[in-house]
Every structure is written in C-alpha cells, then in structure tokens.
Write a protein that binds this DNA or RNA. Structure first.
Length: 451
RNA sequence: GCGGAGUUGGUGAAGUGGUUAACACUCUGGUUUGUGGCACCAGCAUGCGUGGGUUCGAUUCCCACACUCCGCCCCA
C-alpha cells in the first residue's frame, strides 16, 4: 500500500466540513477588516527566504524543502507566508496602489522538514495577514485585535495574547549587546542549546524552557529597558489602542519571536489547552519594517500575523467547539423497478437544479436498507417512487421527523418542499446536547432538540 | 537533527511459536415477493504496519525500514 508522506494529513469527512467552515469564517472576518486575499506560489527562489526570513532562523537553515528544477534554478517550498507576500508586493508595485496601506491575507499550505507531532506537520497550513505601508501604532493594535477576534468569533476560549516590543534597529542592537554581556560570564550555567544561542541568536535564550527558572534568566535585561524614547512611546500607543478595543493582553518581555525580521511590536497567541502540550502557541506576528527594503523594494513599514490552521483545528476539537455545519439532505428518493428508477434520475436532477439537496440510491438497495441510508444522511423527507402513483400523477412524501406521509401531485412537489423544508436554524453540530446550551453560533441553541 | 513509546478488519479492541485471530459496534442479506429503524438468523481480517531472518511452522522471537504519538530543538 502506498501511504501518505510523513508529516502530511488527509482531511475528509466531518473534519473537512469543519475545515471549510473555519476557512469561511476567516474569509468573512477578513472581509470586514478589508483585507484582500492573495495567492502566491508554493515555491519561490530559495534566495527569497534566505534574504527575507533570515540566515539564523532554523526554518531557513535546516527545515526547508529545497530542490533544483530542470533548468538548474534553486527553489524552495515556502516555509512561511510573509516573504512571498512581500515579494509579490514589491514585484507588483503595490506601493503605488491607490489604496494604502495594502492589506493582504492568505490561507495556504507551507512546508517545513521537521519531526512531526500532533499539531505539527511537514505540510502545514497557515493563515496570516500583512498590513504593508504604515508605521502607525493603530496598525499594530488592529493586527493584534484581529487575531484575537477571529478566535473569539470561532468560539475558542482560553486565548492568551502576549506582547512585547523589540524597539527599532538601534534599540534591538543595544539590547542584543546587553544580553550577551549579561549571559557571557554565566555561560557554564546554561544548557547546551543556550550556549549555542548566545552565538547565534541571543534573544532566543529568553525562550529556553530548561533554564527559564534560573537566577541568571530572571536577572536578564528586559527589552523594555533598552527601548529608546521613540520606541517606548510607540509601544505605549500600541497598548493604549489595544485597551480601547478591549483586547486583553500581557506584556511578556520573553516574547522575541524566532524569525529575524521583526522589530518593534511582537506578539504571540497562546491557547491554554491541557492536551496541547508543547504546541500551545497557535499564532504569532510582529512588525517587520525593514523587510520590504531588504528585498529590494522602497523602504516601507509593515506588520503581520500568521497562525497555524492545523493547530487551530486541533484546539477547536479539544475544546469541543460547535460549528453550524449542515449535515443533512432535504430529500432521499427511493425506487424499486426500472421505471421508477428512471423517474428518480429525472427528479433528482430537477430538484437539485431547483436548489434542494437531494440524494437517491446508487446501489440498488432493498427498500429496507434504502431507508437506513436515508436515516444515515439525516434526510428530512423520503419519497418511495411507485409506478402506480406516478401513473396517477401523484407521490407520497414522508416527513422523516414526524413520520407523517402526505400524498401530493407531482407538480406540487417543488412547492411542497419550498414550504416544508426548513433550514436548520439550530446548530447542526451533531453534539449530543439536547439541553439548551451556549453554542458556537453565538446564541443559545439546542443542537438536537428533537431527541 | 536527538531521545522515548507504539502499529491486530470499516471502528473499539482480546489473544497465541502450530491449521476456525475472541468479543462488541458498524455494515450486507434474510425472516417480512414495495415503507425501514425493534427482534431473531446468517455473512463480513487466507489477515495481525512493510521487508528480511530464525524455525518443520511466525501475527507471536530477531533485524532493518515506514508511519503515528510524546519530549527536546524549532516553530504554527
């Protein structure tokens, strides 16, 4: 048997429906914030990620899927979204667009060569958005609150936002020096990984899970203390605007982010879910004012956010978040003989073109198993086509909920369905709650009140 | 890249060096020659992740590999 490659996932059935629903919600929220969808290539020149994401991040140095194409070009499957979007921004001269700043979002697969775990894949899906062309703190606040709001609208609880500021280039450099100066004398007290980090990316020492309780760590200089006056005031504005939007956040000086391109505001979104283990960061982002210029565009400030779609889905599952997913068909058509089958062929097509969700038997089942199939599909109505009835220009339609059967004329069927097929206002999430409860749909609903 | 645990039908799983791989659910058919959901009866893994090896004989023991999961690194 040929199996899927390591670290990939097939998504189908109910999971696919939930997946599509979440995508739809993201689209709708993005529309309200006036972000436009952008689709960029799955592979780009390797150079883009080396220049854009940075040479010290593991994502680029040891986790990319690289290949040389038949023309000898060095290519990389995108490990993250920002670099490609920024490349597109520059290449398509979006800095010249009438509408500024440019607001873009994506929701697509990324590729990282890593050891898989739950919520961590080699083919992972991220959604993210970029606001390019403004350095105003209002953007920072909006980008953060937008992330929070998506999770809120989806009904995910236990979301925590940690923010920090790395300051501008000057502040960031001062801080880096200070960190090295602080840790160098104590290098032997640190773990092996941290020793390496001191050389490569000293900011990440603060993230260490092994050493985090040590005294050296607690007395380490804080980013906030190394911000110059302008950076400090900027950060205060971001916090002020966040409060105005009612966003709860925590200032966490250890949030530094792993990608090299960040400056000023950085933030992480965590899901406080027991089962999540080490994969509890479900999104993160920050400002990257230098990147557009570094990739050959005009000096342009920008800020963005990216979130793991797979982890979000996992969180929604763990938290049992309900979704209004249609899990029923309007009508199931049963037949026995060939004449009836022919009429079923005609009728299924006709009714579908009139907007109804119609299913029929494809396996020449017995009536008994046909009814079972109708039940499995949660059919609202069932019709057993009968030659004698058809000759008399009528048919019997059975309401599967009430078990009542009506005899109607053929011509009246569409009208009958229009009148009697009621959209499920209730959440169709398939949960077992028969009690009224707070549900995803935002209201109190009864998911299966007929039970 | 490092360390650890696991892998038995559609599902949950029990089990053993020896010709029926238990049980339950689901599913299919029948009892009921065109109105089911109950009940009863019957059927449903030539197969125990893949490939080798040991053995008269391997799902069981050994080796390798693949995949899944957990921790680390990193990140989403």
């Amino acid at each position: 048997m040929i199996t899927k490659p390591k670290g990939t996932k097939d998504i189908y059935g109910m999971e696919a429906k939930r997946w599509q629903y979440v995508s739809k919600v993201i689209d709708e929220v993005m529309e309200k914030y006036n972000y436009n969808f952008i689709r960029v290539p799955v592979f780009e020149s390797s150079e883009l990620f080396h220049r854009g994401v940075g040479e010290t991040s593991d994502i680029v140095t040891k986790e990319t899927y690289d290949f040389t194409d038949r023309g000898g070009r060095k290519m990389t499957l995108r490990p993250e979204g920002t670099a490609g979007v920024v490349r597109s921004y520059i290449e398509n001269k979006m800095y010249g667009d009438v509408n500024q700043p440019v607001k873009l979002y994506y929701n697509c697969p990324m590729y990282r060569y890593e050891r898989p775990q739950a919520g961590r894949y080699r083919e992972l899906t991220q959604f993210g958005y970029e606001l390019i062309g403004s350095d105003d703190p209002i953007c920072d606040a909006e980008v953060i609150s937008l992330a929070v709001n998506i999770y809120k609208i989806l009904g995910l609880k236990g979301i925590k936002v940690n923010i920090n500021s790395l300051g501008d280039a000057e502040s960031r450099n001062n801080y880096r020096e200070a960190l090295i100066k602080h840790f160098k004398p104590h290098i032997n007290k640190l773990c092996e990984d941290c020793k390496e980090r001191l050389e490569k990316n000293p900011l990440r020492i603060l993230d260490c899970k092994v050493d985090c309780d040590k005294e050296v760590m607690k007395s380490a200089p804080k980013t906030i203390d190394y911000l110059n006056e302008a950076s400090k005031q900027r950060f205060e504005k971001v916090k002020e605007y966040l409060s105005l939007m009612g966003v709860e956040y925590l200032v966490d000086p250890t949030v530094v982010r792993g990608l090299d391109y960040y400056n000023h505001t950085v933030f992480e979104v965590e899901a406080e879910i027991e089962k999540f283990g080490a994969q509890n960061v479900i999104g993160g982002g920050g400002r990257y004012n230098g990147m557009v210029e570094q990739l050959g565009g005009p000096s342009t400030p920008a800020i963005g956010f990216a979130a793991g779609f797979d982890r979000l889905m996992l969180a929604l599952d763990y938290e049992n978040v309900k979704m209004p997913i249609n899990n029923s068909v309007d009508l199931f058509l049963l037949y026995v003989n060939e004449d009836e089958k022919k009429y079923a062929v005609y009728l299924t097509n006709d009714l579908r073109m009139n907007g109804f969700i119609v299913e029929t038997d494809y396996l020449n089942r017995s009536l008994k198993s046909g009814f079972k199939q109708a039940d499995r599909l949660n059919a609202k109505f069932t019709i057993v086509l009968n030659s004698d009835d058809l000759i008399n220009n009528e048919l019997k339609i059975k309401n599967n909920k009430t078990k009542e059967e009506d005899v109607i004329s053929l011509d009246a069927l569409i009208y009958y369905l229009d009148e009697n097929v009621i959209e499920d206002d209730d959440c169709n999430c398939n949960c077992d709650d028969s009690e009224e409860h707070e549900c995803h749909c935002g209201e109190n609903c009864k998911c299966k009140k007929e039970n």
